[in-house]
Computed example of a mutant assay.
Amino acid sequence: MHIDLRGKTAIVTGSTLGIGLAAAKGLAGTGARVIVNGRKQPAVDEALAAIRQAVPGADVAGFAGDLGTAEGCEALVQAYPRCDILVNNLGIFGPQDFFETPDAEWQRFFEVNVMSGVRLSRAYLPGMAAQGWGRVVFLSSESGLNIPADMIHYGFTKTAVLSIARGLAKRMAGTGVTVNSVLPGPTLSEGVAEMLKEETAKTGKTLEEAGADFVKAHRPSSILQRAATVEEVANMIVYACSKQASATTGAALRVDGGVVDSL
Rank of each mutant, 00 (worst) to 15 (best):
1 M>H: 13
2 H>T: 13
2 H>E: 13
5 L>W: 07
6 R>H: 13
6 R>A: 14
7 G>R: 08
11 I>R: 02
15 S>M: 00
16 T>R: 05
16 T>A: 08
17 L>H: 15
18 G>I: 01
19 I>N: 08
19 I>F: 10
25 K>P: 07
26 G>E: 01
27 L>K: 04
28 A>C: 03
30 T>Y: 04
36 V>L: 11
37 N>C: 06
41 Q>W: 09
41 Q>K: 12
41 Q>P: 09
43 A>Y: 06
48 L>S: 04
51 I>A: 04
52 R>A: 15
53 Q>C: 07
54 A>V: 04
57 G>M: 06
59 D>T: 14
61 A>T: 14
62 G>Y: 02
63 F>L: 07
64 A>D: 11
68 G>R: 02
69 T>G: 07
69 T>F: 06
73 C>F: 00
74 E>R: 12
80 Y>M: 05
80 Y>W: 11
84 D>C: 09
87 V>F: 15
90 L>V: 15
91 G>V: 07
91 G>M: 06
96 Q>Y: 02
97 D>S: 15
101 T>Y: 01
104 A>W: 03
104 A>E: 15
106 W>Y: 13
107 Q>D: 15
109 F>W: 06
109 F>Y: 15
110 F>S: 07
111 E>L: 12
111 E>N: 14
112 V>R: 00
114 V>T: 11
117 G>K: 01
118 V>W: 12
118 V>C: 07
118 V>N: 05
123 A>W: 02
123 A>G: 05
123 A>Y: 04
125 L>G: 01
125 L>C: 11
127 G>N: 03
128 M>N: 04
131 Q>C: 14
132 G>Y: 06
134 G>T: 11
139 L>E: 12
140 S>E: 03
142 E>N: 15
142 E>Q: 15
142 E>P: 03
144 G>D: 11
148 P>Y: 04
150 D>R: 08
150 D>C: 08
151 M>W: 04
153 H>T: 03
155 G>Y: 06
155 G>L: 10
161 V>T: 12
165 A>R: 04
167 G>K: 08
168 L>R: 00
168 L>T: 14
168 L>N: 02
170 K>Y: 12
170 K>D: 14
173 A>V: 07
174 G>E: 09
175 T>W: 03
179 V>N: 01
181 S>E: 11
183 L>N: 12
184 P>N: 09
186 P>W: 10
187 T>G: 06
187 T>P: 06
187 T>M: 03
188 L>W: 02
190 E>P: 11
190 E>T: 14
193 A>R: 13
193 A>F: 03
201 A>W: 08
204 G>T: 09
205 K>H: 05
205 K>F: 00
205 K>A: 10
209 E>R: 08
209 E>H: 04
209 E>P: 08
218 H>D: 12
218 H>K: 13
220 P>D: 05
224 L>P: 00
224 L>E: 04
226 R>Q: 10
230 V>F: 01
231 E>Y: 12
234 A>Q: 09
236 M>T: 11
238 V>T: 02
238 V>C: 07
238 V>R: 06
240 A>G: 01
241 C>D: 02
242 S>T: 05
244 Q>V: 11
250 G>P: 02
250 G>F: 07
252 A>R: 07
253 L>W: 09
258 G>W: 05
259 V>L: 06
260 V>F: 08
261 D>C: 08
261 D>E: 13
261 D>V: 12
262 S>E: 13
262 S>Q: 13
262 S>D: 12
